[in-house]
């Protein structure tokens, strides 16, 4: 099996273990959020926030960050993209509940994408004129790149995953109350707007780290499918959370194994495995416990 070879060979382990570890971190933070994303119908907001990354990537490319090496490049890129995503998330959150946020999402999505495409194109032309290698193109932002994952990426992914999961755990009682009944949580003295903003920031964090690996388009899939799978299997909160984590981890790790074995793109392989799990969950009876 290629997977075993990649992970045990002295030459290849250094390349492939960071991919597996970063993938596990992404699965952890996306699964934790995906139940809320599905139930509170935040998937379209996730799309808007993830597309805001284009603007960040464009600015990073124009600043020539692609020519910097290693961890500095990685951190600078992520910081800029994160700023864009959080700004987009908070802008959308200001519009109130999701029914009113559609317009804001549409504006953020179109504006950031247009800005990103223009800036990436400008950066590519400038690099060409200087005889430097072209920065990562639009395609790498759309579909991500597991193969460029380094040890630093894996570290960042785990730190972000712990922040997201830790934030959700600390605010779990208020966040679940807000997500279940936003109107009532305000009437019971909770800050509805603040809770929404917290969830938006956690969503932006998860999206940034996911899109580095799986791209903008597949980040949305990872934020929806684990929750959708779990909700088809159970009607108990704790069971649903556990199943979402299991589905997310199985989808990401299973997808990586599939991509190693069949020499496929990792991102689509992950989504493919998750879709198979969703189909299986739709046929399975609900778990009572």
């Amino acid at each position: 099996m290629r997977t075993i070879e990649y992970l045990t060979s002295a030459d290849l382990a250094g390349l492939y273990w960071p991919i597996v570890l970063a993938g596990a971190a992404v699965a952890l933070c996306c699964s934790a959020l995906s139940v809320l994303v599905v139930l509170r119908r935040l998937a379209f907001i996730g799309q808007g926030v993830s597309h805001a990354a284009f603007g960040g990537v464009g600015i990073a490319a124009l600043l020539g960050l692609a020519s910097l090496g290693g961890a500095t490049h990685e951190l600078a890129m992520l910081a800029i993209v994160l700023c864009f995503c959080i700004a987009a998330a908070l802008a959308i959150a200001r519009f109130g509940d999701e029914h009113q946020a559609d317009t804001a999402i549409g504006i953020v999505l179109a504006g950031a994408m247009a800005l990103g495409v223009v800036l990436i194109d400008l950066a590519a032309r400038r690099a060409l004129a200087r005889g430097e290698p072209a920065p990562a193109g639009v395609e790498s932002v759309l579909f991500g790149s597991f193969t460029s994952v380094t040890e630093t990426t894996a570290w960042i992914a785990w730190i972000v995953a712990l922040i997201v999961v830790g934030g959700l755990w600390l605010g779990r009682r208020q966040i679940v109350f807000w997500a279940f009944d936003p109107g009532a949580c305000e009437a019971f003295g909770l800050e509805r707007a603040r809770l929404r903003a917290v969830v938006m920031v956690l969503l932006a964090l998860a999206i940034v780290v996911t899109m580095r690996l799986a791209g903008v388009i597949l980040a949305t899939a990872l934020l929806v499918l684990p929750g959708a799978i779990a909700l088809r299997l159970s009607r108990r909160w704790v069971t649903v959370l556990a199943l979402a984590h299991a589905a997310g981890l199985l989808g990401v790790l299973g997808g990586l194994v599939l991509s190693f074995e069949a020499d496929l793109q990792p991102g689509p392989s992950v989504v493919g495995v998750l879709l198979v799990l969703l189909a299986a969950a739709s046929l399975a009876p609900k778990i009572k416990a």
Binding site: L39, R173, A179, F180, D181, G183, F188, R236, V240
Partner: peptide, 30 residues
């Protein structure tokens, strides 16, 4: 208060007991 039109999302996999416990739980340290 109990609102005229509840904004509750009834697809949440929560039991009646968990829903009733929500406001009390929200005041307890995590």
């Amino acid at each position: 208060s109990v609102a005229q039109r509840p904004t509750a999302e009834l697809a949440f996999p929560l039991s009646v007991r968990q829903v009733v416990r929500m406001p009390i739980g929200a005041r307890v340290a995590p």
